[in-house]
Write a protein that binds this DNA or RNA. Sequence first.
RNA 1: GGGGCGUUAACUCAGCGGGAGAGUGCUACCUUCACACGGUAGAAGUCGUAGGUUCAAAUCCUACACGCCCCACCA
Length: 890
Amino acid sequence: MKPPSTASAASMDKSFDPKTVEPRWRSHWEKHDIFRAEPGSSRPPFCMVIPPPNITGRLHVGHGLNNALQDVLARWRRMSGDDVLWVPGSDHASIATHVMIERQLEKEGITRQQLGREKFLERAWAWKQKYGGEIADQLRQLGASCDWSRERFTMDPGLSRAVREVFVRLYEKGLIYRDRYLINWCPRCGTAVSDLEVVHKEMLGKIWTVRYQLEGGGEIRVATTRPETILGDAAVAVHPDDARYRDLVGRRAILPVLGRMIPVVADSFVDPAFGTGAVKVTPAHDPNDFLAGRRLGLEPIVVMDETGRMNAAAGPFAGLDRFECRTRLLEQLRNDGALIEEKDHMLSVGRCQRCDTIVEPMISLQWFVRMEPLAAPALEAVESGRIAVVPDQWKKTYYEWMRNIRDWCISRQLWWGHRIPAWYCAQCGAMIVSREDPVSCACGGRRLEQDPDVLDTWFSSGLWAFSTLGWPESTPELRRYYPTTVLVTGYDIIFFWVARMVMMGLEFMEDVPFHTVFFNGMVRDAKGEKMSKMKGNTVDLFDLLDTYGTDAVRFTCAALTSPGSDVAMSPGRLEGSRAFANKIWNAVRFARPHLDAAPAAPPAVEDGLGPADRWILSRCSRVAGEVNEALEAFRFDEASAKIYQFAWHELCDWYLELSKQPLSSANAQEADASRAVLRHVMERVIRMLHPFMPFITEELWQALPRVAGDPVSIALCAYPLSEPAFEDPEAESALATLIDAVTMCRNLRAEKKVAIKEPVRTWIQPANEAVARSLAGLEVQFKRLTRTSELQIGVIPAEVASVSGVSASAALQMAIQHEGRTTDVGAERARLQKEIEAASKELSVHEVKLGNEAFVSRARPEAVEKVRSAHGELSERIKLLKSALSRLGA
RNA sequence: GGGGCGUUAACUCAGCGGGAGAGUGCUACCUUCACACGGUAGAAGUCGUAGGUUCAAAUCCUACACGCCCCACCA
């Protein structure tokens, strides 16, 4: 099959236009199915599972970053010969989707309850149909090289089966249980949420001191920030050792307003120093009090319903909203003279992560996962290094959470999600937990009702690493790709997802879900502030792609990803990347006619290549090595910077200019040699860049001369490695010399404002015979570089040149600059560097000795002095060397 | 209350024991036959503050200041 037509050499636009190029290759990749993994392949497997985006909306810049990085790895490994499986998919996002759909319903003026479960689920599936597909399209737009044939959704039949299997196994093992417990309740969503889904925010509130009369006279004062919970008080507690209250323990207090009698009890959880030292105990509406209530045998009194309204137990306040109740209750307390003090107080208020409603601690019957037994192996897996964490600062966060783990409330009073596989018999009340829907109870009863609740959305995503590969079936994919190689994700979901995936993987696959987890940073705006809709500083990913082009955005993501730091999407960086894409485009535009004429065979060292050719081949080899090294270490910033620097400032700024002359040489052999080198280097750079900028590189690669047997896409070409045969220190040294000479001419011209009209000749004293040979007879046009017609380099000992066509003072200046030093800066620099290294080594030896001598020194101080003076001398020498180096380096 | 991260040029960020760097912006000059999304030259930084270790500190240690983030049941 023929590739789509690329712009011909003649018609290549002056600037790169992403909009025409990107769609072409997107469909080309799809058509040729080049991202499909091959479980039967003999190549080493490399697998990643995508952090499944929620189906709640379009991708944001954070997704852009995360997927750009994954794609860099996927394409790099694929080109490096691995059998890459990158599993795409999306998450049903139970509660988040609920919030979105309920917002729709609100506009229509109905509640989800009015709509009913069946109709609501129809809506949810329709939503999924629409947005699930959009997300896949958006990932494609980014160029994500996922295996689309293996796309998954957390509510697919297979994955749902995995969820049931896990639930039942955990239940049978006693790790899932059902209990009445104090949980976080979101009154708006009408569901329990886990501790992680509660976001605590500091805000200025008030603290009130309230007087409770004691039965038979006297009073006790308590402080509270939530006076409405007074209605549910079961006791007043004081510290057992608190002398002020010791005598009151065992007496009864009269609850204000309601007049109910509650005991005064002693418990050490009370801090005598806080507030009045006496605390109201509301077991049904406060986590601390709940535990205290259990210890003290107090009966919880529930005063609110699941919508946040006061219930019958609230007496005269029944039916009021909780905050309205607070206001009214305070009024009454004030009227009754029971309100003693009101003052400002900073408090931390828990809000629903999804809808920002203030959550209410409530007692309720829920399902939980017992976490300690699962956490222990998960902790060990990271401690032992079986899972590598990059950057490793996140280990500490992970350990901290694992070591203080608490049971996980997994049931949600929602409809969209995996329904809990538990049934209750209407006849005998028995509970059946089962993989298959049961038809009858052991008692013979046939009226079975399934638990109405669904599971926390993170329950199914916790299985993602193996459920997407076919578990519980033993599929070829599961056997080959589990454990996956790398997980790339944001650190914001380290507990929600990463930690739980480790636990689930170890429990059900008896192995880690991934060998390495790489945490990318969070995307900030250009000022480094967190993006939020409230602040209005959000940047739309697709606006960015539209403005700068997908390649430029992806390149910027990589360039800004250094381990452990967040990413600020700065316009400057984006512009730089866009300019870079254009630069590469034009480099190929220049090179193409020469490449078409180039010999098919790659260059060879025996071809008698010139110094510039040998130099660029050598540099290209080194850069390839460095880029691979950087990628191995997840240094996306270093890898992209190396390519950028090399491509722009070595290849374009110098090599392309230097090659213009030989490329158009009448000497066919010389021209061919240069063409072969240009072709080789150009293609290698484009390949190196491909994982970062897939679209432009595909376009350019397709435009290069093709040979039989080439793959259909650059994505299937080999990723460049270093080529030791081309590494050539002498050529590098020679070119450093040349570059120095040219730069010097330019400096002179700029500083002295001289117009150099005729050829300038400069003489260089080479460092050694080899460099001399490299440079001998090198005559290059530097029209572009010096604004002179040409610069001749002659190999002549240190005598001063006569310079024609420049002013006398400029000539003199030039002569001075040449005199008295070797202009082979490269060699000189290397020599000095070596001396410094040697001196430093010597120093470190002395340091060791100094340690020993210091011990002896108590008896012989002069020995220490000797060492110290040696240090001083060496330090001086290093300073001298460094200053010499800086003079040369500049 | 505990923990983490950051503070380097005007902006966004690398560097983490021996020459203070990149991209963008800025200044001057230049439409030269790949590219003005370009070329050349250049200005620009007490590397948060104060101590300490070292022959040598932006880089290691200790405090402090400011900023950001996470975790935590203090009424």
